[in-house]
């Protein structure tokens, strides 16, 4: 029987815990991996009141219908990805929480034309914070992340960062961002971020 402690995050091979610091540092940028996120992709018709209500019921969160925004509740964030697509995100959850969350949604949406797909295993979550976080992202991401343009905390977007597709969620106006990237690209993107942040000073911190 395999124990859940044998799960490996996308960046497990880098041994980040071994060279990270605890507290925020003076460095312009703080980087970390938030390992093993829970994520469920949700498809459905936001024009269908039954769908919207069923999601609210199941998650206790309103479905964000404004483009590039996320709604957040206790330990759960719901990201707008497109006109009929959302991503429910959760951190620090148990090994099989993803299946449970998906099951809950499937049950709630039974009978509606909707799709629920587990995605967390395919994602790596990187956290990027600090005074120069925006400057680092700008080196590879064509989005305008200025507060006037992006909207600050609670805003999200799918775009490109360097040569990887990412979903970006601003989690603090400090600023701090979460980057969701497909697992196989995580090693590349981590190394890219460390390199891009070099001129500002970069600290690997514990998530």
């Amino acid at each position: 029987m395999i124990e859940t402690y044998l799960r490996q995050s996308a960046l497990d091979h880098l041994g980040l815990a071994g060279h990270s610091t605890a507290a925020p540092t003076e460095a312009g940028v703080q980087l970390s991996e938030k390992p093993l996120p829970v994520a469920v992709n949700l498809r459905g018709d936001s024009g269908d009141a039954a769908f919207v209500e069923a999601v609210r019921e199941a998650l206790g969160l309103a479905l964000p219908t404004l483009p590039n925004t996320a709604t957040t509740g206790e330990g759960l964030a719901l990201l707008w990805l497109g006109p009929d697509e959302w991503l429910a995100m959760q951190h620090d959850a148990a090994a099989f929480a993803e299946a449970q969350l998906a099951t809950k949604l499937r049950k709630a949406l039974d009978g509606l034309h909707a799709a629920v797909t587990e995605m967390g295993e395919s994602l790596c979550c990187l956290s990027l914070a600090g005074a120069q976080a925006r400057a680092v992202l700008a080196k590879g991401c064509p989005l305008d992340l200025h507060p006037r343009a992006f909207g600050g905390s609670g805003h999200c977007a799918q775009s490109l960062l360097a040569k990887a597709a990412v979903t970006l969620l601003q989690v603090s106006d400090a600023p701090a961002f979460e980057l969701y990237v497909r697992r196989s690209f995580a090693d590349y993107l981590w190394r890219w971020l460390e390199d891009a942040a070099r001129e500002y000073g970069v600290a690997v911190v514990r998530p």
Binding site: P67, N68, G82, P83, P142, L143, A157, Q158, S159, L160
Partner: peptide, 10 residues
């Protein structure tokens, strides 16, 4: 029409 103005590379 959904996400707003974005760079052509997307």
């Amino acid at each position: 029409p959904h996400c707003g103005p974005r760079a052509e590379s997307e």
